[in-house]
């Protein structure tokens, strides 16, 4: 492709010149229309997608101002009167505040403490398997639950954990125990939530660590082996440090959603009996906002959640950059 006919000789110098100009002065303002003119069709291509982002992502961010207003449907978002932090104060003083924060935080921390390390361990174990077929067999199987919907996973929990007909309780009864109504018992909610999440996603989450592990230089292992390092020592001193940047990035991302416990599964697992343990910020927003039509109040709660999440993300990212020189950006 590179050394073709002589026709190329004419435009090639021109192109390289163009590129040089751009590299030198991408930030200079003024009549720099050349890059736009040359790639006008690319701008045409990207334009509708940018409109999409403005409409569906940025307009709601603009609309979040209703959290500081008293939303009146006829007046619209702009016409409604400002009320300052009234809705936030009402939320902080409300009966639900403590329960929502503690449930949301506890689930988030529980997930972080148990759910975060398991995919790393799984990846380290799978990485040690030498048999190619067994390796891909294990991978295929552990990925499978990821492709089920939340509705199916929660539905399966209801079926398998049912106090009358579920197999888990049948086993408990077989060993002389009393059947437990797992899905309505508040004490079981968080554990079921976290462990069903691990069951569904441990394989999938391990892919990213496996990818990082595949980039480890085999020479390191050979050298360590000659020095008499055992498998465990090599995992601990070579593999784990090698994937540390990936682990930190994933940790930052997970910390950033610690207060953003996903609506979908909590909502499905929630019922009037386990509410004291299962009510989280997002489900509360759904109930007061979508079902109760208290738009301003629920938007305020949602905004509170987003802002806290963003602050945590920035803090963790900042710390990671200072301590480990790894960060999201």
């Amino acid at each position: 492709m590179e050394n073709q006919s002589t026709i190329e000789n004419v435009p090639i110098p021109k192109m390289s010149k163009e590129r040089k100009i751009k590299r030198k002065s991408p930030k200079v303002k003024g009549p720099k229309l050349k890059p736009f003119r040359k790639n006008w069709d690319l701008y045409l291509l990207i334009f509708p997608v940018l409109i999409y982002f403005i409409v569906f992502k940025y307009i709601p961010m603009y609309g979040v101002q209703i959290a500081f207003k008293d939303f009146i449907a006829v007046e619209g978002i702009l016409g409604s009167p400002w009320v300052g932090f009234e809705h936030f104060e009402r939320f902080f003083d409300s009966f639900y505040f403590e329960r929502l924060i503690s449930n949301t935080l506890l689930i988030g921390l529980y997930e972080l403490a148990v759910g975060f390390p398991i995919p790393i361990i799984l990846a380290l174990l799978i990485n040690e398997v030498r048999n190619k077929y067994f390796k891909s067999f294990i991978q295929t199987i552990t990925y499978a639950p990821h492709f089920l919907s939340v509705v199916v996973v929660v539905g399966m929990m209801f079926l398998l954990l049912s106090p009358q007909t579920g197999i888990v309780n049948q086993i408990i009864v077989l060993f002389g125990g009393e059947p437990i109504s797992f899905m309505t018992e508040p004490g079981w909610f968080k554990t079921l939530y976290v462990f069903s999440g691990i069951w569904q996603n441990m394989g999938w989450s391990s892919i990213i660590y496996l990818a990082a592990l595949s980039a480890v230089d085999p020479q390191l292992h050979e050298a360590a082996e000659i020095d008499g390092a055992s498998r465990l020592q090599r995992i601990w001193h070579i593999n784990l440090p090698s994937i540390k940047p990936t682990i930190i990035i994933m940790l930052i991302l997970q910390c950033g959603s610690i207060l953003g416990v996903g609506f979908e599964k909590v909502f499905l697992m929630q019922n009037s009996l386990n509410m004291s343990a299962s009510d989280v910020i997002s489900t509360h927003v759904y109930r007061t906002g979508i079902l109760g039509s208290e738009y301003s109040y629920s938007a305020a709660i949602g905004l509170f959640e987003s802002v806290v999440n963003l602050v945590i993300l920035l803090l963790v990212n900042y710390t990671a950059r200072k301590v480990n020189k790894v960060s999201l950006w």
């Binding site: 590129r19 990207i46 569906f56 603009y62 979040v64 979508i290 999440n309 950006w329």
Partner: peptide, 30 residues
């Protein structure tokens, strides 16, 4: 494309939506 002027700005513009959003209610109203 490396010669696409403004890619940095646009990337930041869309990446921001990963970390912050208007939330359930403003989106519903939209």
């Amino acid at each position: 494309r490396k010669d696409f002027y403004g890619r940095g700005v646009i990337t930041a513009f869309i990446m921001f939506t990963m970390f912050f959003s208007g939330g359930m209610i403003p989106t519903f109203l939209l």
